[in-house]
Design a binder for these strands. Structure first.
Lengths: 177, 177
DNA sequence: TAGCCAATAGATAGCGGTTACCTATTCGGG
DNA sequence: CCCGAATAGGTAACCGCTATCTATTGGCTA
């Protein structure tokens, strides 16, 4: 979450409500369950960590609502690192999806290359899972679990093919609003 | 995690290290990354919540190592609720796997019925995802994400078939050690 | 005009998951 | 006799997430 929020700030400074709207739009129906308060928790923690700063210049001078946050240099580094890394311990569909969105919107990375890197990682894990499954005794619980992992990895690889098709034909549709 | 730890205590009281070993064995290669300290964090929080109590009777009287925890009545209720519920917001492969394990070990529920309930839930979500995908404009990011969700759900359904095969032939292999 | 509701905007308390790190004992082998 | 592995217990701090609260603005209606 923190990475996704920071990545949304990479293109331009914004206030919490706007970030929330961006994330919801990027996630579609899956984003409807997102809690708005989480954005502010995430932003305040990122501010404490020095990844963002608040410039509360928006609105009338007497009513400084709309706290506008901007990425610091450390924040930009963090975003770049997030986009560069693959194969986190928690492979999340939505997280990778947001990564593609942010990369395209902020022109920080090529989505097609991100897809290729992710595919390499998933193939690597698929090999690992197969090997691990072979090492398990037949009928063991762990073997069954590994079978589930394999099936999911295969499904994710098929999804990546769709991602590649979609993002290789897109050039400038990643608008912000 | 908390639910899984509590479920491991449903069969008999145990101390943290033993619970850790049980979870690692149940998860196989996927459990190797589990941090041991997490068990103690989980147990202390469960104790604060009144779900477990500590009977530090094991070991010599002068050296009360091996804190043995036991479920309270509230803890048993919690475990029963965990086994009864389906379709959490976070469908996790390992969590369901552990649920089957715990249900079989503690004789608290029929694994085959749990599989059937899970399949009903996944089919329901599959219908939802399909409907949501139809409502999305073609080529939108959210539609792509929904396609990934559908592929994963289909993979999980295939995995459930393997689970059913495996657990319908098992009767008493869920030993504890 | 007063009342009400939705959208906008921000925030906090608290739980649970996770990691990184620390301590202490026991026991066998070099 | 010391060293290291296995066993056993623990803490601090972070992040994700939910439930809940406040406040303003603007429009609609009774």
């Amino acid at each position: 979450m923190q990475d996704a929020v920071l990545a949304m700030l990479a293109k331009q400074p914004a206030h919490g409500y706007h970030l929330h709207a961006l994330l919801r739009r990027a996630l579609g129906p899956l984003g409807e369950s997102m809690n708005r308060g989480q954005i502010y928790v995430t932003l305040s923690r990122a501010e404490r960590a020095g990844l963002v700063v608040c410039e509360r210049t928006e609105g009338l001078p007497e009513r400084p609502e709309r706290k506008v946050y901007a990425l610091t240099a450390a924040g930009h580094q963090r975003v770049a690192a997030w986009l560069a890394e693959v194969g986190r311990p928690k492979p999340d569909l939505a997280e990778f999806h947001l990564k593609l969105f942010a990369a395209a919107a902020a022109r920080l990375a090529d989505p097609v290359e991100l897809v290729a890197a992710q595919r390499r990682e998933l193939l690597r894990r698929l090999r690992e899972a197969h090997q691990a499954a072979l090492a398990e005794p037949a009928g063991s619980g762990a073997g069954l679990l590994l079978e589930g992992v394999v099936l999911r990895l295969q499904a994710d690889l098929r999804w990546l093919e769709s991602c590649e098709r979609a993002w290789s034909t897109v050039d400038d549709e990643a608008e912000d609003g």
